[in-house]
Amino acid sequence: MLNMMKICEILEMDNIEKGKRIELKEEHKNSVFFLKRGSVKIIDNSSETVKYVVKRGNVFGELSLFDKEAAIEEVAFALEDCVICYIKSDQMEALMEKHKSLKNGLLKIYGLRIQKLERRLNDLLFKDSPTRIKEFILDYLDEFGEIDKSGKSKAKNLLSHKDIANLTNTSRQTVSNVLSKMRKEGVIDYNVEFISKVL
């Protein structure tokens, strides 16, 4: 079985510094990326809003497999120092035909991403802004956090208040207010480097 991290051993690899842009429409046009280390945020090129965050071991740029024009509408930024592996979409398609487990793995990741987008839409329709922000923070801690020595879930504080506002369809001021309230209520604690679940 060929898993996604093993693929990195046979692909081109780049080190990307924190804050750097990963160009999806020029030097890496029509490429699929595997994130070996770090995390990146994917931004819509036209609206400049954050679409989703990718963590280590996941894929981005996979739209080039399905719609090459749609793929260039995205921009990726390194949220921390990253190691990325990349492969041209036509080569990736050939690998997927040869290794069905790779195809299934990629479809699973894509399916989970679609589920998240559907949930965001549902939340926008049926939940108020504070609830959306609170649930986003707790989900972020579940996905990106690690259990520290005290048994609390702790994650790197990688997203700005503006990023969180984009991802929850709220305002930066509302995000600041909700985070402050969550800290006062003892639900979370945070600083410029980390965010952790207290309860």
Results as ranks from 00 to 15, higher is better:
150 S>I: 06
147 I>R: 13
147 I>Q: 12
143 E>G: 08
154 K>G: 01
164 I>V: 15
155 A>Q: 04
162 K>H: 13
149 K>F: 11
133 I>F: 06
158 L>M: 14
138 L>N: 07
147 I>H: 02
166 N>F: 14
160 S>Q: 10
163 D>H: 14
167 L>M: 15
165 A>C: 10
155 A>K: 00
157 N>I: 01
167 L>P: 03
159 L>D: 00
131 T>I: 15
136 F>R: 03
150 S>T: 13
146 E>T: 09
159 L>H: 02
138 L>W: 08
134 K>Y: 07
151 G>R: 02
134 K>R: 15
144 F>L: 07
146 E>I: 03
159 L>W: 00
144 F>G: 00
145 G>N: 01
147 I>Y: 10
142 D>Y: 10
133 I>L: 06
154 K>P: 00
132 R>W: 01
149 K>S: 13
158 L>F: 09
139 D>E: 14
142 D>Q: 12
139 D>C: 06
143 E>N: 12
152 K>C: 10
162 K>Y: 12
152 K>G: 01
160 S>Y: 11
138 L>T: 06
135 E>I: 04
166 N>T: 09
164 I>R: 04
168 T>W: 06
146 E>V: 07
157 N>W: 09
138 L>S: 03
151 G>V: 04
162 K>T: 13
151 G>I: 02
165 A>S: 09
142 D>S: 11
142 D>F: 11
140 Y>C: 03
151 G>K: 01
160 S>L: 14
167 L>Q: 05
137 I>C: 03
142 D>K: 13
141 L>P: 05
136 F>E: 04
166 N>C: 12
133 I>N: 04
167 L>H: 02
148 D>E: 03
132 R>E: 06
145 G>C: 05
139 D>G: 09
133 I>G: 02
132 R>M: 08
148 D>V: 01
145 G>V: 05
160 S>I: 12
138 L>K: 10
150 S>N: 13
160 S>F: 09
131 T>V: 14
162 K>V: 11
150 S>H: 09
149 K>P: 02
164 I>E: 00
141 L>Y: 08
141 L>N: 07
158 L>Y: 09
140 Y>V: 02
141 L>V: 06
131 T>P: 07
147 I>G: 01
144 F>Y: 14
154 K>L: 14
162 K>G: 09
146 E>R: 09
166 N>S: 14
143 E>L: 13
166 N>L: 05
158 L>N: 04
146 E>H: 10
157 N>M: 15
153 S>F: 12
151 G>C: 08
144 F>C: 00
153 S>G: 08
133 I>R: 03
160 S>P: 09
145 G>T: 03
133 I>D: 01
154 K>C: 14
